[in-house]
Design a binder for these strands. Structure first.
Lengths: 224, 224
DNA sequence: TAGATTGTTAATCGATTAACAATC
DNA sequence: TAGATTGTTAATCGATTAACAATC
């Protein structure tokens, strides 16, 4: 990825920087909600367990978030990052699979705030169809394709049982979805232009396992 | 982290390698379930969008997963990685907060398989108390502290409303939990010896947003 | 002014890749 | 044997950190 910063210089922004931007925004939104007005690179970096120089180096690719000598203004930084990440451009979304996980995600208020308005929820279970979650009705899966086309849905959250994951993903793609947030513990195959983000709960758990179990291990095994 | 590999040489294993181990294991378990017996570094790497040489380099720190000329045996590699990651040592776990998200996670069968047997579910809501999920009853939150102490619970999954997250986390820590898997969209403060893994759904969504929106951008902005 | 802070560059550090001998 | 594959090292590449002038 390349950007043109405020002084007209071109930079290739490293992937590592790109991946940190959402973390910065997430933390800044929390600060904003807590009523914090100013934050220094040092404070923000410390709260994220990184070095202040790294944070400034990251921001430097985009340029002009503050002036030398002045800390960052939270209310200016938040919208600036939102624009860079693309959160300010709404992307209509649906959830497919209204089991507990799907319903739990549907209740997650931040989606709208992050530019992903929830437009529909779909399930095959007739007992669920008709229920509403935060004003969004659960519809029969058979109506999904037409709904995606009619409402220009771009992203689908996949929270169906594993055994139907690929089949439902195929339907999403055929209907026109360009991004899939996959919560099922399996791989789904899609055409290259469709972006899949696998939210592998197993991986998160194993990372925790790894760290948890290193507690109490010997110096020999723990190192640094 | 330092390890001693099979030939007695010591290596400092890079963090980047450590973070990939769960991805390897996750993929290998899928292959195993699909009945695949052998896999080459090339096949496995391709399916994970990395280079084969990187995968072999990663494995090299631990040594001896195969022999030159022979591909990896899935049935040997899986337990080897499980041991390295620590999945083979069970860590009893509870879920605190039995809303949709908590119930969705409780239904996730892989927990046991990954060494995290679910021993209890807790909630304040009397309507939920007494329900069972996969044989595990939902208990009143007031019983959590005693339960953690009695059953030697090590890890707690935090799926309570944001406004009580810190308070509940404090109770968990006081009771003796050493790892918290935090699904609430807020920071929780814990003593340094307690490991917190934040499962920030917002961050995953923003990463998807970032990628989704780069589709169709100009070359100027997209670069390579 | 003095202390704090950013923007920016250069130096250090770590991670990835290529290459190939050894092996099946 | 010929082709495929791993284990292993060295070379390349990219990311992090330190340092400090400029600024408030």
């Amino acid at each position: 990825m390349r950007v043109v910063n405020t002084k007209g210089k071109k930079f290739r922004v490293p992937d590592a920087t790109i991946l940190r931007l959402p973390l910065y925004l997430d933390k800044l939104i929390l600060l904003q909600q807590a009523g914090v007005k100013e934050v220094s690179s040092r404070q923000l970096a410390t709260s994220l367990d990184i070095k202040a120089s790294q944070l400034r180096h990251d921001f430097h690719y985009f340029g002009g978030f503050s002036k030398p000598g002045r800390p960052y203004q939270v209310d200016k930084l938040v919208p600036a990052l939102e624009e860079i990440i693309g959160v300010d451009v709404p992307v209509p979304m649906i959830i497919v699979g209204a089991g507990h996980l799907g319903q739990g995600l549907a209740n997650y208020r931040n989606f709208e705030r992050l530019g992903f308005p929830l437009r529909g929820i779909f399930d095959v279970d007739p007992k669920l169809v008709g229920l509403e979650i935060r004003g969004v009705p659960i519809r029969p899966l058979s109506e999904m394709t037409a709904f995606v086309k009619e409402h220009g849905i771009k992203v689908g959250v996949l929270t169906v049982p594993v055994n139907v994951a690929q089949d439902v993903a195929n339907q999403m793609v055929a209907a026109g979805v360009v991004g899939i947030w996959n919560f099922t513990p399996t791989d789904i195959r899609t055409p290259p232009q469709v972006i899949v983000r696998n939210e592998r709960l197993a991986v998160g758990l194993m990372c925790l396992s790894f760290k948890t179990k290193r507690i109490g291990q010997t110096e020999e095994l723990r190192g640094d």
